[in-house]
C-alpha cells in the first residue's frame, strides 16, 4: 500500500533536550492515523517537521512522495493543515477568508465551508478576531474541509470545541474518509474521540520512546489487571512484563501486553500477593493513561 507519510530515523532536539530519536514510521494512504502522547512529547514538533516549518537535526521525512522540507505548491494544495490553536488570519471576516482560500484550491467546496460555518449563526462579515476560540475553530475546520485535501493533518482539532460540534466534526471526518483514498493524521487531547475514528495509532513518550500499532491490535493486546492492595505491592516496579502500574486507594492496577496467566505468574514470582486479580476492560483513554501514566 502506498504511504503518504514516510519518516526515517528522524532525530530532533531543542538544545540538549532530545525530542525525537531515530523515529521511523509510515502512514498508509486511506488510513486515519492518531498521534497520541502527553504534553511536551513532541507531537506539534513532529507536525512542524512534516510540514517543513522546522528542520530536523537528522533523518528523512517524505510527504506525498516529496521531501517534507521542500514541498511543491502542488503537494501543499493536497494537504489540509490545521495548526495547533486553530491559527487563522484574524483580520479577515467569514466571507473574506473563504474568498481568499478558494482561489488557492482547485477542488474548493464552498458549500462544505458554509455548511459548517452557517451553524455559527453569525453574519458573513463577522471578523474572526471577534470570535470565541470555539467559533474560530469551526471556521478553520470548515476551511480545511472545503479544500477537499488528499491528506488532512490536524494538530489538536478538539481544542476549544464544545461536545456537540466535536461530534459533528467527527461525522464530517468519517464522511470525508469514506471513499478510502483520503488520509488523516490527527492529534487530540480528547483521546476518547479517536477511539471510533482512527485505525492506526502511534504513542509518543518522553525521551523519544514510540509505540506504533493498529488500534485493534492495541486494544486487544494491551490489558489492565487489578488486584487489592497489600503490603507486598510496595515492591512493584516496571519491567519487561509490567509496562506500567498505578496504585490508587485500595486497588493496584498493572498494565501489560502479556496475558493474565503470565502476568499473574510474574507477580507471584516477585512475591506479590494478587488476591482477586482480574482483567479490567479499558477505553482508549484508559489504555492511553495506562501506557503513558497520569503525569
Amino acid at each position: 500500500m502506498e504511504n503518504v507519510i514516510e519518516v526515517e530515523n528522524l532525530t530532533h532536539c531543542y538544545g540538549k533536550r532530545v525530542i525525537h530519536e531515530n523515529l521511523s514510521f509510515t502512514v498508509p494512504r486511506g488510513s486515519i492515523f492518531g498521534l497520541l502522547g502527553k504534553n511536551g512529547v513532541g507531537k506539534t514538533t513532529l507536525i512542524k517537521i512534516l510540514m517543513g516549518f522546522l528542520r530536523p537535526v537528522s533523518g528523512r521525512c517524505r510527504v506525498l512522495g516529496e521531501d517534507s522540507h521542500n514541498l511543491s505548491p502542488a503537494a501543499r494544495s493536497k494537504i489540509g493543515l490545521l495548526f495547533e490553536g486553530h491559527l487563522a488570519y484574524e483580520f479577515m471576516s467569514i466571507a473574506q477568508i473563504e474568498k481568499f482560500y478558494s482561489a488557492h484550491y482547485p477542488s474548493w467546496n464552498r458549500d462544505l465551508y458554509y455548511g459548517l460555518v452557517d451553524r455559527l449563526d453569525l453574519p458573513y462579515d463577522h471578523k474572526i478576531k471577534n470570535m470565541s476560540c470555539g467559533q474560530r475553530s469551526q471556521v478553520v475546520l470548515g476551511l480545511i474541509f472545503a479544500q477537499e485535501p488528499e491528506l488532512m493533518i490536524l494538530d489538536d482539532y478538539s481544542m476549544g470545541l464544545d461536545a456537540g460540534y466535536r461530534r459533528l466534526f467527527l461525522e464530517y471526518l468519517s464522511e470525508y474518509v469514506n471513499d478510502g483514498t483520503k488520509t488523516v493524521f490527527v492529534t487530540s487531547h480528547i483521546v476518547q474521540d479517536l477511539e471510533n475514528l482512527v485505525n492506526e495509532v502511534m504513542f509518543l513518550d518522553r525521551g523519544g520512546e514510540v509505540l506504533q500499532t493498529s488500534l485493534d491490535e492495541f486494544m486487544i493486546g494491551f490489558k489492565q489487571f487489578r488486584f487489592k492492595r497489600n503490603g507486598s505491592a510496595n515492591t512493584l516496579h516496571r519491567d519487561d512484563v509490567i509496562r506500567n502500574l498505578d496504585i490508587s486507594g485500595d486497588n493496584v492496577s498493572v498494565y501489560s501486553f502479556r496475558p493474565m496467566t503470565e502476568v499473574g505468574a510474574h507477580l507471584a514470582e516477585m512475591g506479590i500477593e494478587t488476591a482477586g486479580l482480574e482483567q479490567v476492560p479499558m477505553t482508549l483513554e484508559d489504555a492511553f493513561i495506562g501506557l503513558t501514566g497520569k503525569y
Binding site: 493543515l81 495548526f83 491559527l87 488570519y89
Partner: peptide, 18 residues
C-alpha cells in the same frame, strides 16, 4: 506584525504558492 504574532506566517507558507 500580524503574520509573525503566533507564527501565523506558517499559514502563508503553507499556501500552494512558491
Amino acid at each position: 506584525t500580524p503574520e509573525m504574532i503566533g507564527h501565523r506566517f506558517r499559514l502563508s507558507l503553507h499556501l500552494p504558492v512558491r
